[in-house]
Design a protein around this nucleic acid. Structure first.
Lengths: 198, 198
DNA sequence: CCTTGTGAAGTTCTTCACAGCA
DNA sequence: TGCTGTGAAGAACTTCACAAGG
């Protein structure tokens, strides 16, 4: 569904006013029937014979998905990867803002990284209780990932973006998504191998 | 399946010799039945009453998934994100190596980034025909993504790791995986919103 | 005539549950 | 006894196809 919202935003900036399920489906590589089913789940947004009003549907989707507000995030781990995440310009235009950074390395604590002061991981609980966030981003070494995640969950965070290569365990009411390029690559090599006959 | 391989590697380094589908399932957050079904699809690797031999199963999985060899990759786009990808230390231990880097910015061409000389994107076809690779990594601005991907496909690349926020179109016999942290975040906000009642 | 919204049919994926073997 | 491999049952998801409305 966030994919639909993104495609609609692109259509809107192109000046399109109406779109059919077929066109939208082509843009996001999904069948037209699938588009209609997904949208119909949340309401009746379309007009028979015409399609969907781009602007109106985009507004609806943003509201439904919670994309019409700011989300505050905390980052744990300011190593090479963590600093790249802090420097990523793609978050804020979409309403995601990193508001603190933590690291366990004494050499990093107190430093300024991308406009944020790096705090000690020991202060996670203290800072998050003073200044709560919605989402936690974890970019620590694999060994400490589960521990950090447990602590974030205990602080009330219910969504985690996990950049570490570990399958961490969280309660059912906590969501976690993993960003793992190696896993993505490994998911493709099987088919590559099969196709090349190697 | 690559997840199973990773969990097995961890078990192996812990000195475990045997693992049951139940234990492996807990490690990767999958049901024991699912583990058995998945593994049985490729062969009969287990022993009733005991479980799976960690070492042997890991070898089999690596062979099946094509993880027992090196994969050569090309990177297009050496902006902030592309340079972070080049600097990522997680690829090579798993057998993935970036062997060239391209950029369209004249200011970048000829520069050395992470040990690689940056080539002009105009030379993609020439370099890839001299020195073919298995996988393409795309980290260019959204506007040029589809064009770059088309060219990589034309060069015979059949697997693409797409770091851009666009749904690009590729032939059926070409695989593409997308790394898009914002999309992952947007996939969680719906449930966050629902839970908080906002 | 065009396109939605939606039951029905079809397909794929997941769990159940147990025979069979170490 | 313990755990695999696997048919059968069940659940979830996808496509089909069409009535109804602009």
């Amino acid at each position: 569904m966030p994919l639909y919202a993104r495609a609609l935003a692109a259509l809107e900036s192109q000046g399109r006013f109406v779109v059919s399920s077929k066109e939208l489906g082509e843009a996001v590589a999904v069948s037209d029937a699938q588009i209609r089913k997904d949208l119909a789940y949340f309401g009746r947004f379309g007009k028979q014979g015409r399609g969907y009003d781009v602007q109106k549907l985009l507004d609806e989707l943003r509201r439904i998905l919670g994309l019409n507000r700011q989300w505050r995030m905390t980052l744990v781990g300011t190593g090479r990867l963590g600093r790249a995440i802090l420097g990523y310009e793609g978050f804020s235009p979409q309403g995601f803002r990193i508001v603190h950074a933590f690291d366990s390395d004494v050499g990093m604590i107190g430093k300024d990284v991308g406009g944020l002061t790096v705090h000690s991981t020991e202060d996670i609980e203290k800072l998050l209780s003073e200044d709560p966030v919605d989402i936690g981003i974890v970019a620590v070494p694999a060994e400490t990932a589960q521990n950090v995640i447990d602590r974030l969950v205990k602080c009330g965070i219910r969504a985690i973006l996990n950049y570490t290569p570990v399958t961490a365990h969280v309660p059912d009411d906590v969501q976690m998504k993993r960003i793992d390029p190696v896993l993505s690559l490994q998911g493709m090599t099987y088919h590559l191998k099969a196709a090349s006959g190697a």
